[in-house]
Design a protein around this nucleic acid. Structure first.
Lengths: 229, 229
DNA sequence: ACCTGAACACCGTTCAAGT
DNA sequence: ACCTGAACACCGTTCAAGT
C-alpha cells in the first residue's frame, strides 16, 4: 500500500491520488490526515501546504471522482442529437455508474459534502444541454434534473439494504433474527420468497442493484418523454 | 437548552429525546457523547449504561425518527383500499416528509447509517401491503420499492443544491463567483434566469423542493400505474 | 518554499473506584 | 445498579523552528 517515493515531491495531485487509493482499499474512515501522510512518507503537517485541511481533502476527493466520471462519460457516446436524448442520457448515467462501482465510498461522500464539488455543475450543464436540444422547456428540464437526482451521477441512495452487509458471520443469529422478523413483516417475507425462487429470472437473488437502477431510470425517462410531448 | 433535571433518572428514552433536541438546535456535529452528557447534567461515561456507545446513539436517533414517521403517517389517512393506492402512498410519503422538515439532519443520518434502523422494515412492509392489495406482482412491487427509494421516507438526496447553503454573507464574492460560472455553464445560467422570472408560477425562486418532490413522486406513481396494468 | 516536532484542544472509550 | 474521575489512544490543527 505504501506509495512512498522520495523522488517525486509532494503535491495536491499526488496526495489526492493516494487518498483515492487508500479509500478504495480501506474505506473513508481510514482516511485520516495522519494516515494519509504516512502513506505518502511524510508528516501529517506537510499536507497543509497542499490541501486546506481535512474538509478540503474530502472536497478534493469528491472533485477527483467527478473528474473520473467526465472521463468515463467521454469514452461512452453520449452526444447524440435530437430524438435520441434518452439513449444519450442512459449511456451517460450508466458510465457514471461504473465509476461509482469502482469507488464504493463515493456515493456517501458526494451525498454528504456540505458544498457541491464544482465539477458537478459542469456535469449537470451537459445533461441540461441534451434536454434542451431535445425540445424540453426550462421548466420541465429543471424538474427532470431534480427527478434524476443522484441517478445522474450513477447511484441511488441505498436506504433499504440487507441488515448486515458488513460481513456477519453469525449465521445462526442472523437466521433466528430473520425468523423473528418474518412474523412482523409478512409481506416483505413473502416478496423475498417469491423473488428469490424464480430460476428463469436474470435479476435472481435479493436485489440486483444494476437491474433496479435501470428500471427506475427507464421509468423516469419514459415519464419525461411523455411529459415532453 | 440545558434539560438537567435531577428528579427523573437517566434513561435511554430521555437520552435520545435530548439528543434529538440537541441535533435540531445545533446539528449532528454538536452531538458528542460529552456534550450530550452535559445537556443531561451527567458525566459522559454514564451514557454507556443506557446506550451502547456513539454508534448505538446514532442508531437510536434514526429509530426515533422512524418512530415519528409512523406517528405522522398514522395521523394521515393512508389505508385506502383497492384502486386508490396512489393516493394512499402519496399521503404517506408527504406525511413522512413533514417529519424530515422538522429534523433537517435526519435525511443524511438515515442515508449514512451502516445498518438500517429496524423500524424501517416495518414501514416498508406497510407500503408493500398497499402495493400488493392493489394487484402488484411481487416483481413489480419489489422494483417499486427500489424506485421510491428515500422518497418513501420523505426526502430525496440533495446532490445538486446552492453553492453555500450555510449562510454566505460575502454577497460580492458570491456574485463574482456566479458571473464566472455563467460563462462555463451557459445552459444552467439560462435555465435559472428563465425559471426565476415567471411571476405567475407558484414554484417561483430557485428550487422549490416541495414541488420538485411531488413532481418526481407523481412521475413514479404514474409510471408504476402504467406498468401495473 | 517546504517540511518538521512538539504541543493544544478536542474526540470515543476503558477501567477501577466509589455509592 | 448506577454514576464518576482519571487515563488511554486516537483525532485535526497551530505554531515556532528548522532547512
Amino acid at each position: 500500500m505504501r506509495t512512498k517515493n522520495p523522488r517525486e515531491p509532494l503535491s495536491r495531485e499526488r496526495a489526492l491520488a493516494t487518498a483515492v487509493t487508500l479509500a478504495d482499499a480501506e474505506g473513508i474512515p481510514a482516511l485520516t490526515m495522519r494516515r494519509l501522510a504516512a502513506e505518502l512518507g511524510v508528516e501529517a503537517m506537510s499536507l497543509y501546504h497542499h490541501l486546506p485541511g481535512k474538509e478540503g481533502l474530502l472536497d478534493g476527493l469528491a472533485d477527483t471522482v467527478v473528474g473520473e466520471i467526465d472521463v468515463a462519460v467521454g469514452r461512452a457516446a453520449v452526444t447524440g442529437t435530437g430524438g435520441d436524448w434518452r439513449t444519450g442520457l442512459r449511456r451517460r448515467f450508466l458510465a457514471a455508474r461504473e465509476v461509482m462501482l469502482r469507488h464504493p465510498w463515493a456515493p456517501a461522500l458526494l451525498g454528504s459534502r456540505p458544498t457541491i464539488p464544482t465539477g458537478v455543475y459542469a456535469y449537470y450543464d451537459g445533461i441540461l444541454a441534451t434536454l434542451l436540444s431535445a425540445g424540453f422547456s426550462h421548466r420541465l428540464a429543471h424538474r427532470a434534473l431534480h427527478a434524476f437526482g443522484s441517478l445522474a451521477l450513477g447511484f441511488t441512495q441505498e436506504v433499504f439494504r440487507p441488515a448486515r452487509a458488513g460481513g456477519n458471520t453469525d449465521v445462526d443469529g442472523a437466521a433466528a433474527e430473520l425468523a423473528a422478523m418474518a412474523e412482523a413483516l409478512p409481506h416483505l417475507t413473502a416478496m423475498v420468497a417469491a423473488e428469490a425462487h424464480d430460476p428463469a429470472d436474470p435479476t435472481l437473488g435479493w436485489c440486483d442493484s444494476q437491474v433496479e437502477f435501470e428500471f427506475t431510470l427507464d421509468l423516469l425517462l419514459d415519464g419525461l418523454e411523455r411529459a415532453r410531448r
